[in-house]
Nucleic acid binder design. Structure first.
Lengths: 207, 207
DNA sequence: GTTAGCATGTAAGGAGTTACATGATTTT
DNA sequence: AAAATCATGTAACTCCTTACATGCTAAC
């Protein structure tokens, strides 16, 4: 059975790919990049980090004043509390690449899609396309269910319930349009260039 | 400490208000009315129902062929398996009214808002307005955070992360517009009429 | 006859939050 | 001097899903 929530681990590996970080900072970046409703709690993050150390994907660096931690993000933070800076190992990088290579059904589920999308810049074009298309057909399924449910129960529902459903339906429709635009953009200048670079600019003409 | 997820209990009470039902049917209606991503599992529902019996909000009616269960939704289901039909008690109705009277901070959170909205037809206008306005300011807070986060980190983000944030931002903007329209509609013919009826029709001119 | 749907449950476990515990440093 | 922010952790608990266990009826 495939584990269905490597979300946190994936995100941590992805962020540490940018630069080594300590837990507190990691949490902030995590909350920023994946705009979760609630902020991630330490009670989730720290145990997760420990587990990842055990698995050999990251290592702890407990040298408070070292250059490694300072260079990245923190300017002149010499005398603070002993911070534990986490760094990717070779196995960690390898594992992350494996995760990015997966384009299976779990990747287009609600919980996973956002993380995967957030690291699309480091994902192969083919994988990107398969995930986007998978996500789209997932959303289209949902669309059909919602539409038929609205059709069937329209009579028995009061105005508010109806309005709630209508709004939900429109949200999914909007998501499908968004995915269509992304897929088109991938297909257009997706095959010509094969760069993973940071000046890669997906649909600015979207919306 | 206020319990933060009476969602299921609220929904069950609300649906049983329409008519008595057994667990299996309740699950289907629950999934239909509150369009959750995943379907509610029996592992959640049945223990919840037992707990509600213990609390005295509902009672089990184990008379397989009775009129009570048949009249509501199931035509000619005489010889099926012994079904347990759940029915509201007086205390259950009272508790539901208490729940509907609450317009506190928890009601405009993501997890609770949809259930509350689904039963707006049985909720007072003042409470409806307070919930909608609370929800809106909640969404506006989120909007501001997202906007400033986008502003701050625009440079450091790659195209995909940017696109993800842009899309998330637009979703929240859309939700705010929706809430504005609902609030306007409530205010317009909300003070004049005080009916809770089923031909009450909130914004058909919405969107 | 076998698959799909009806119908009710329990046990184990996953994934996360809240609340607690601790303490330094910076800002007001 | 107090409050906020930095920084790391643990224990208990909640809520929910998955997987299992059981058995009946309708349709194909």
């Amino acid at each position: 059975m495939p584990r269905r929530s490597d979300v946190l681990e994936t995100a941590v590996l992805g962020l540490l790919h940018e630069s080594p970080m300590h837990g507190y900072e990691l949490r902030k970046r995590l909350n920023a990049v994946l705009g979760w409703g609630r902020a991630l709690s330490y009670g989730s993050l720290y145990p997760c980090l420990k587990a990842m150390v055990t698995k050999g994907w990251i290592v702890e660096d407990t040298s408070s004043g070292s250059d490694a931690s300072r260079s990245a993000t923190a300017p002149a933070l010499a005398g603070r509390r002993a911070r534990i800076v986490y760094e990717l190992t070779a196995e960690g990088k390898e594992h992350f690449q494996d995760l990015l290579g997966d384009a299976g059904p779990s990747t287009w589920e609600d919980e996973n899609f956002d993380v995967r999308f957030a690291f699309f810049a480091r994902t192969d074009v083919e994988v990107r396309l398969r995930i986007l298309e998978g996500r789209r057909s997932r959303m289209e399924d949902r669309l059909e269910k919602l539409r038929s449910s609205l059709q069937r129960t329209r009579e028995r529902m009061d105005g508010y319930t109806l309005e709630l459903h209508r709004h939900g339906l429109e949200s999914v429709e909007r998501e499908v349009r968004w995915l269509n635009e992304l897929i088109d953009a991938e297909r257009e200048h997706g095959t010509a260039e094969r760069q993973h670079g940071r000046d890669r600019e997906p649909p600015t003409d979207v919306g």
